[in-house]
Design a protein around this nucleic acid. Sequence first.
DNA 1: TAAAAAATTTAGATTAATCTAAAAAAATTA
DNA 2: TAATTTTTTTAGATTAATCTAAATTTTTTA
Lengths: 217, 217
Amino acid sequence: MYSFTEENYLKTIFYLSIGAKEGVSTNALADSTNTRAASVSDMLKRLAEKGLINYQKYRGVTLTEEGERLALLVIRKHRLWEVFLAEKLQFGWDEVHVIAEELEHIRSERLIEKLDAFLGYPKFDPHGDPIPNAAGEMPRFIYRKLSEIVEGTTVVMTGVSEHSPAFLQHLDKAGLTLGCQLKVNEISDFDKSVSVLIDNVRTLFVSHEVAKNLLVK
Amino acid sequence: MYSFTEENYLKTIFYLSIGAKEGVSTNALADSTNTRAASVSDMLKRLAEKGLINYQKYRGVTLTEEGERLALLVIRKHRLWEVFLAEKLQFGWDEVHVIAEELEHIRSERLIEKLDAFLGYPKFDPHGDPIPNAAGEMPRFIYRKLSEIVEGTTVVMTGVSEHSPAFLQHLDKAGLTLGCQLKVNEISDFDKSVSVLIDNVRTLFVSHEVAKNLLVK
DNA sequence: TAAAAAATTTAGATTAATCTAAAAAAATTA
DNA sequence: TAATTTTTTTAGATTAATCTAAATTTTTTA
Ligand SMILES: [Mn+2]
Ligand SMILES: [Mn+2]
Ligand SMILES: [Mn+2]
Ligand SMILES: [Mn+2]
């Protein structure tokens, strides 16, 4: 059994590793976990001893196979609880993350498998992120950002790359929800803002800042 | 915010206080929490400083009003989660307790109020125990034990005073569930076992040991 | 490439929660 | 009531997770 803290480190290392070719740095971890570099160094020693990370002093870390499996199981729990909170308890997608941060550490395999069944084996969480399976495997979808779509193209909103409540609430106000159809009418030369036709009904201007964080396919 | 450990102490003091006229003893707490008396002494000092218990050295403890309110809020969460596990996830009543021991510490008032609504504001948990309200108030029902019912009387099974999986599984095998009607046919002079007519259909012999732990009204 | 800057680790503390062993207080018994 | 036993508290350690300050290593810059 691993502590909440250890589980959180694994998860953080997993996320910081995405798309990185080097190991994750001590400072990056200190930032993400709101601790000091010295505390991170300490913890890395312990995680390395337990065989969950590959660690050489001053070099940065990567997860071992076992470490990644565990990280993905925590992420699985996190995302399944987010689905539960959003679909069954009617929480907004801007509210589910903080609560799931606690629920993800509940240790019962049976619980999570039954929850999965109760939710109808969802494949994605409320933010469009894929849910790893019980073996700790997760499909990797490669979506484009709305900001990269050329004029005239029609796409579907499949996810967000920014999960802050402020951003999600902004999308709520704009009426942008997962699954909606977006036709890119025009991209402004001036500020790169995007004029999109939503579900063939109404037109909306989306700032470049927002467009960068909208994932589409 | 209180730690899991502190919350567990409050809950344990609450349970050990029921029906006691003296304060709860250090040793009783050490037994219930699987720690040593020295550790309990330590913790009691801290809880007293925080105004959650009334504590004088060598005297034993009682909860303050605030301590009792907090204990009941933890119990509220525990019991609501038990209902969720049993009713929504199809866990047996012998399985829900251990999982609820973890879930009861999730800190989100909104979560628990939404869970309550989702479950249809249940008044009792899967073991027949009443669920405290959001203010930390709990109705106290006084039920009798099946072992105290006189021959010829018909009663309804409303709860259990023993919550071990072994006991609950035993009741499952015997087909004894909450709400079933029990007519006491005869009490054996020899071993105090009770012959009961269940739901007017079949007769069952219940040992005194079991009868003592069945609550009825 | 040597000096300066940045990143990382080590040293030494701190805090919550626990422990064992010893001391002290309360309760029981003779 | 005095001696004995039981209960409880204190003293002093330990462990996980954290911190600040200092030392060390790596990276960048001049
Ligand atoms: Mn999340
Ligand atoms: Mn999510
Ligand atoms: Mn329970
Ligand atoms: Mn219960």
